[in-house]
Amino acid sequence: MSVSIDARACVGCGACARACPGNLIALGPDGHARMRRPRDCWGCTACLKACPAGAIAYFLGADAGGRGTTLRVSRSGALSVWEFRRPDGSVERVEVDARDANAY
Protein backbone atom coordinates (compact mmCIF):
# COMPACT_ATOMS: atom_id res chain seq x y z
CA MET A 1 0.00 0.00 0.00
CA SER A 2 1.76 3.07 -1.12
CA VAL A 3 2.12 5.67 -3.81
CA SER A 4 4.56 6.02 -6.65
CA ILE A 5 5.47 9.51 -7.83
CA ASP A 6 6.49 10.07 -11.43
CA ALA A 7 9.37 12.56 -11.21
CA ARG A 8 9.02 13.45 -14.90
CA ALA A 9 5.41 14.53 -14.44
CA CYS A 10 5.92 16.19 -11.04
CA VAL A 11 5.77 19.99 -11.21
CA GLY A 12 7.34 20.45 -7.76
CA CYS A 13 4.44 22.41 -6.28
CA GLY A 14 4.52 20.56 -2.95
CA ALA A 15 0.74 20.09 -2.76
CA CYS A 16 1.16 16.37 -2.06
CA ALA A 17 3.60 17.01 0.79
CA ARG A 18 1.17 19.44 2.37
CA ALA A 19 -1.77 17.05 1.94
CA CYS A 20 -0.16 13.89 3.35
CA PRO A 21 -1.48 13.31 6.90
CA GLY A 22 1.67 11.38 7.76
CA ASN A 23 4.36 13.84 6.61
CA LEU A 24 5.60 11.07 4.32
CA ILE A 25 6.26 13.08 1.16
CA ALA A 26 8.96 15.72 0.80
CA LEU A 27 10.44 17.73 -2.03
CA GLY A 28 13.88 16.37 -2.86
CA PRO A 29 16.99 18.37 -3.77
CA ASP A 30 15.94 18.18 -7.43
CA GLY A 31 12.70 19.99 -6.60
CA HIS A 32 10.54 16.92 -7.26
CA ALA A 33 8.34 15.24 -4.68
CA ARG A 34 9.53 11.94 -3.32
CA MET A 35 7.86 9.35 -1.11
CA ARG A 36 10.33 9.10 1.73
CA ARG A 37 8.53 6.41 3.77
CA PRO A 38 6.74 4.00 1.38
CA ARG A 39 5.96 1.51 4.16
CA ASP A 40 4.18 4.15 6.22
CA CYS A 41 1.49 5.06 3.69
CA TRP A 42 -2.08 4.65 4.97
CA GLY A 43 -3.58 4.68 1.49
CA CYS A 44 -5.86 7.66 2.04
CA THR A 45 -5.11 8.98 -1.48
CA ALA A 46 -5.01 12.61 -0.27
CA CYS A 47 -1.85 13.17 -2.34
CA LEU A 48 -3.40 11.81 -5.55
CA LYS A 49 -6.32 14.18 -5.13
CA ALA A 50 -4.04 17.15 -4.37
CA CYS A 51 -1.64 16.64 -7.28
CA PRO A 52 -2.44 19.04 -10.14
CA ALA A 53 -0.25 17.09 -12.59
CA GLY A 54 -1.61 13.57 -12.13
CA ALA A 55 1.90 12.48 -11.24
CA ILE A 56 0.98 10.20 -8.34
CA ALA A 57 -0.23 6.63 -8.67
CA TYR A 58 -1.52 4.45 -5.89
CA PHE A 59 -0.81 0.73 -5.67
CA LEU A 60 -1.37 -2.19 -3.33
CA GLY A 61 1.70 -3.82 -1.82
CA ALA A 62 2.14 -7.44 -2.87
CA ASP A 63 1.43 -8.48 0.74
CA ALA A 64 -2.01 -6.83 0.46
CA GLY A 65 -2.83 -8.53 -2.82
CA GLY A 66 -1.16 -6.04 -5.16
CA ARG A 67 -0.21 -7.43 -8.58
CA GLY A 68 0.84 -4.28 -10.35
CA THR A 69 -2.36 -2.41 -11.14
CA THR A 70 -2.10 1.31 -10.40
CA LEU A 71 -4.80 3.84 -9.60
CA ARG A 72 -4.86 7.51 -10.59
CA VAL A 73 -7.53 10.12 -10.20
CA SER A 74 -8.30 13.35 -12.02
CA ARG A 75 -10.84 15.77 -10.64
CA SER A 76 -12.92 18.46 -12.18
CA GLY A 77 -15.43 20.07 -9.86
CA ALA A 78 -17.62 17.39 -8.32
CA LEU A 79 -16.51 14.83 -10.89
CA SER A 80 -13.65 12.41 -10.25
CA VAL A 81 -12.39 10.01 -12.87
CA TRP A 82 -10.52 7.08 -11.33
CA GLU A 83 -8.27 5.27 -13.75
CA PHE A 84 -7.01 1.71 -13.21
CA ARG A 85 -3.97 0.69 -15.30
CA ARG A 86 -3.21 -3.01 -15.36
CA PRO A 87 0.30 -4.34 -15.97
CA ASP A 88 -0.82 -5.63 -19.39
CA GLY A 89 -1.52 -2.03 -20.41
CA SER A 90 -5.32 -2.28 -20.23
CA VAL A 91 -7.09 0.65 -18.64
CA GLU A 92 -10.45 0.89 -16.91
CA ARG A 93 -12.12 4.08 -15.73
CA VAL A 94 -14.79 4.67 -13.11
CA GLU A 95 -16.47 8.06 -12.91
CA VAL A 96 -17.68 9.26 -9.55
CA ASP A 97 -19.86 12.32 -9.16
CA ALA A 98 -19.43 13.56 -5.58
CA ARG A 99 -23.08 14.64 -5.51
CA ASP A 100 -24.20 11.12 -6.31
CA ALA A 101 -21.41 8.73 -5.44
CA ASN A 102 -22.96 6.59 -2.83
CA ALA A 103 -25.98 4.40 -3.26
CA TYR A 104 -25.40 2.94 0.20
Binding site: G43, Y58, F59, L60, G65, L71, F84
Partner: peptide, 17 residues
Protein backbone atom coordinates in the same frame (compact mmCIF):
# COMPACT_ATOMS: atom_id res chain seq x y z
CA UNK B 1 -17.02 0.28 -6.82
CA UNK B 2 -18.09 3.91 -6.62
CA UNK B 3 -19.01 3.80 -2.93
CA UNK B 4 -15.55 2.46 -2.02
CA UNK B 5 -13.71 4.93 -4.27
CA UNK B 6 -15.48 7.55 -2.20
CA UNK B 7 -13.98 6.41 1.13
CA UNK B 8 -11.61 3.46 0.78
CA UNK B 9 -10.22 3.25 -2.77
CA UNK B 10 -8.00 0.25 -1.98
CA UNK B 11 -11.00 -2.06 -2.03
CA UNK B 12 -12.08 -1.05 -5.54
CA UNK B 13 -8.47 -1.35 -6.66
CA UNK B 14 -8.34 -4.81 -5.14
CA UNK B 15 -11.45 -5.89 -7.06
CA UNK B 16 -10.07 -4.45 -10.31
CA UNK B 17 -6.71 -6.05 -9.65
Amino acid sequence: YRAYLNMSPAQTLRWME
